[in-house]
Amino acid sequence: MRIGVIGLGNPLQQDDGIGIVLVNKLNERKHLLPSDVEILDGGTGGMSLLHLFARFDVVFILDAVNFCRKPAESRLCTYDELLSKKTPITMSTHETDVLHVLRLAKELNQIPEEVYIFGVQPKTISPGMHLSRELQDAVPSLVETVVKKIVVLSQRKKR
Protein backbone atom coordinates (compact mmCIF):
# COMPACT_ATOMS: atom_id res chain seq x y z
CA MET A 1 0.00 0.00 0.00
CA ARG A 2 1.47 3.34 -1.06
CA ILE A 3 0.04 6.45 0.51
CA GLY A 4 0.96 9.83 -0.94
CA VAL A 5 0.51 12.90 1.18
CA ILE A 6 0.65 15.77 -1.30
CA GLY A 7 0.60 19.43 -0.33
CA LEU A 8 -0.76 21.85 -2.92
CA GLY A 9 -0.78 25.61 -3.19
CA ASN A 10 1.35 28.66 -3.70
CA PRO A 11 3.39 29.86 -0.72
CA LEU A 12 3.86 33.23 -2.48
CA GLN A 13 0.14 33.85 -1.92
CA GLN A 14 0.05 33.73 1.87
CA ASP A 15 -2.65 31.32 3.12
CA ASP A 16 -2.84 29.63 -0.27
CA GLY A 17 0.45 28.01 0.74
CA ILE A 18 -0.93 26.24 3.83
CA GLY A 19 -0.67 22.86 2.09
CA ILE A 20 3.05 23.42 1.50
CA VAL A 21 3.62 24.64 5.07
CA LEU A 22 1.96 21.47 6.38
CA VAL A 23 4.08 19.29 4.10
CA ASN A 24 7.26 20.94 5.39
CA LYS A 25 6.15 20.40 9.01
CA LEU A 26 5.21 16.77 8.29
CA ASN A 27 8.65 16.19 6.82
CA GLU A 28 10.12 17.24 10.17
CA ARG A 29 7.97 14.61 11.86
CA LYS A 30 8.37 11.83 9.39
CA HIS A 31 9.29 9.44 12.22
CA LEU A 32 5.69 9.64 13.48
CA LEU A 33 4.30 8.44 10.19
CA PRO A 34 4.06 4.87 8.87
CA SER A 35 6.78 3.80 6.43
CA ASP A 36 4.38 3.39 3.52
CA VAL A 37 3.69 7.12 3.53
CA GLU A 38 5.48 9.46 1.13
CA ILE A 39 5.25 13.21 1.63
CA LEU A 40 5.39 15.43 -1.45
CA ASP A 41 5.27 19.12 -2.27
CA GLY A 42 3.04 19.33 -5.36
CA GLY A 43 3.08 23.14 -5.47
CA THR A 44 0.89 24.46 -8.24
CA GLY A 45 1.73 21.52 -10.41
CA GLY A 46 -1.37 21.41 -12.60
CA MET A 47 -1.10 18.50 -14.99
CA SER A 48 2.05 17.25 -13.30
CA LEU A 49 -0.17 16.14 -10.45
CA LEU A 50 -1.64 13.48 -12.72
CA HIS A 51 1.71 11.68 -12.72
CA LEU A 52 2.17 12.14 -9.00
CA PHE A 53 -1.27 10.74 -8.23
CA ALA A 54 -0.69 7.71 -10.44
CA ARG A 55 2.14 6.53 -8.19
CA PHE A 56 -0.10 5.90 -5.18
CA ASP A 57 -2.93 3.69 -4.03
CA VAL A 58 -4.20 6.36 -1.68
CA VAL A 59 -3.68 10.10 -2.07
CA PHE A 60 -4.14 12.52 0.78
CA ILE A 61 -4.17 16.10 -0.52
CA LEU A 62 -3.47 19.06 1.75
CA ASP A 63 -4.78 22.32 0.37
CA ALA A 64 -6.38 25.68 1.07
CA VAL A 65 -10.09 25.23 0.43
CA ASN A 66 -12.77 27.85 0.71
CA PHE A 67 -15.79 26.26 2.35
CA CYS A 68 -17.04 29.46 3.97
CA ARG A 69 -15.91 28.70 7.52
CA LYS A 70 -13.75 30.50 10.02
CA PRO A 71 -10.08 30.87 9.02
CA ALA A 72 -7.98 27.79 9.86
CA GLU A 73 -10.99 25.48 10.23
CA SER A 74 -10.24 22.23 8.51
CA ARG A 75 -12.27 19.55 6.93
CA LEU A 76 -11.60 16.17 5.39
CA CYS A 77 -13.59 14.94 2.46
CA THR A 78 -13.28 12.33 -0.21
CA TYR A 79 -12.97 12.98 -3.91
CA ASP A 80 -16.50 11.68 -4.48
CA GLU A 81 -17.92 14.03 -1.87
CA LEU A 82 -16.10 16.90 -3.45
CA LEU A 83 -17.45 16.08 -6.87
CA SER A 84 -21.00 15.58 -5.62
CA LYS A 85 -21.16 19.36 -5.16
CA LYS A 86 -23.32 18.85 -2.10
CA THR A 87 -20.79 20.92 -0.29
CA PRO A 88 -20.15 24.49 -1.37
CA ILE A 89 -16.43 24.21 -1.88
CA THR A 90 -14.02 26.10 -4.02
CA MET A 91 -10.35 25.44 -4.05
CA SER A 92 -8.30 28.60 -3.90
CA THR A 93 -6.01 30.08 -6.56
CA HIS A 94 -5.53 26.85 -8.42
CA GLU A 95 -9.22 26.23 -8.00
CA THR A 96 -9.97 24.50 -11.26
CA ASP A 97 -6.75 22.62 -11.53
CA VAL A 98 -6.81 19.82 -9.02
CA LEU A 99 -10.44 18.90 -9.62
CA HIS A 100 -9.94 18.85 -13.37
CA VAL A 101 -6.81 16.78 -12.97
CA LEU A 102 -8.69 14.32 -10.76
CA ARG A 103 -11.54 14.09 -13.25
CA LEU A 104 -9.08 13.47 -16.04
CA ALA A 105 -7.22 10.90 -13.95
CA LYS A 106 -10.52 9.09 -13.49
CA GLU A 107 -11.32 9.13 -17.21
CA LEU A 108 -7.86 7.78 -17.97
CA ASN A 109 -8.15 5.12 -15.32
CA GLN A 110 -5.16 6.56 -13.51
CA ILE A 111 -6.88 7.60 -10.34
CA PRO A 112 -5.74 6.14 -7.01
CA GLU A 113 -8.17 3.85 -5.21
CA GLU A 114 -8.93 6.53 -2.67
CA VAL A 115 -8.45 10.27 -2.76
CA TYR A 116 -8.87 12.43 0.34
CA ILE A 117 -8.70 16.18 0.49
CA PHE A 118 -7.81 17.81 3.76
CA GLY A 119 -8.90 21.41 3.24
CA VAL A 120 -8.01 24.36 5.42
CA GLN A 121 -10.07 27.53 5.27
CA PRO A 122 -7.75 30.40 4.24
CA LYS A 123 -8.13 33.95 5.49
CA THR A 124 -5.89 36.01 3.24
CA ILE A 125 -4.80 35.17 -0.27
CA SER A 126 -2.60 37.91 -1.65
CA PRO A 127 1.12 38.25 -2.43
CA GLY A 128 3.23 37.54 0.63
CA MET A 129 5.20 34.65 2.06
CA HIS A 130 3.67 34.55 5.53
CA LEU A 131 0.52 32.85 6.68
CA SER A 132 -2.18 34.96 8.34
CA ARG A 133 -1.97 34.98 12.14
CA GLU A 134 -4.99 32.67 12.43
CA LEU A 135 -3.48 30.02 10.20
CA GLN A 136 0.00 30.40 11.63
CA ASP A 137 -1.36 29.78 15.14
CA ALA A 138 -3.30 26.75 13.96
CA VAL A 139 -0.36 25.02 12.22
CA PRO A 140 0.68 22.81 15.21
CA SER A 141 -2.85 21.50 15.75
CA LEU A 142 -3.41 21.06 12.00
CA VAL A 143 -0.23 18.99 11.81
CA GLU A 144 -1.45 16.84 14.77
CA THR A 145 -4.79 16.30 13.07
CA VAL A 146 -3.18 15.32 9.77
CA VAL A 147 -0.74 12.90 11.45
CA LYS A 148 -3.60 11.18 13.31
CA LYS A 149 -5.71 10.87 10.19
CA ILE A 150 -2.86 9.44 8.15
CA VAL A 151 -1.97 6.91 10.85
CA VAL A 152 -5.59 5.76 11.06
CA LEU A 153 -5.80 5.53 7.29
CA SER A 154 -2.61 3.49 7.05
CA GLN A 155 -3.77 1.08 9.79
CA ARG A 156 -7.17 0.65 8.21
CA LYS A 157 -5.54 -0.13 4.89
CA LYS A 158 -3.27 -2.73 6.46
CA ARG A 159 -6.13 -4.69 7.91
Binding site: D41, G42, G43, T44, G45, M47, S48, H51
Partner: peptide, 21 residues
Protein backbone atom coordinates in the same frame (compact mmCIF):
# COMPACT_ATOMS: atom_id res chain seq x y z
CA UNK B 1 1.15 10.31 -24.16
CA UNK B 2 0.78 10.06 -20.40
CA UNK B 3 3.82 7.81 -20.09
CA UNK B 4 6.18 10.12 -21.95
CA UNK B 5 4.89 13.24 -20.29
CA UNK B 6 5.53 11.50 -16.99
CA UNK B 7 9.07 10.66 -18.17
CA UNK B 8 9.81 14.34 -18.78
CA UNK B 9 8.46 15.06 -15.34
CA UNK B 10 10.48 12.30 -13.75
CA UNK B 11 13.72 13.47 -15.37
CA UNK B 12 13.16 16.94 -13.91
CA UNK B 13 12.33 15.44 -10.51
CA UNK B 14 15.48 13.27 -10.41
CA UNK B 15 17.73 16.16 -11.37
CA UNK B 16 15.78 18.92 -9.67
CA UNK B 17 15.36 17.13 -6.35
CA UNK B 18 11.62 17.77 -6.12
CA UNK B 19 8.46 16.81 -7.96
CA UNK B 20 7.16 20.11 -9.30
CA UNK B 21 9.38 22.99 -8.27
Amino acid sequence: VIKHRAYGQKITAILGGKATH
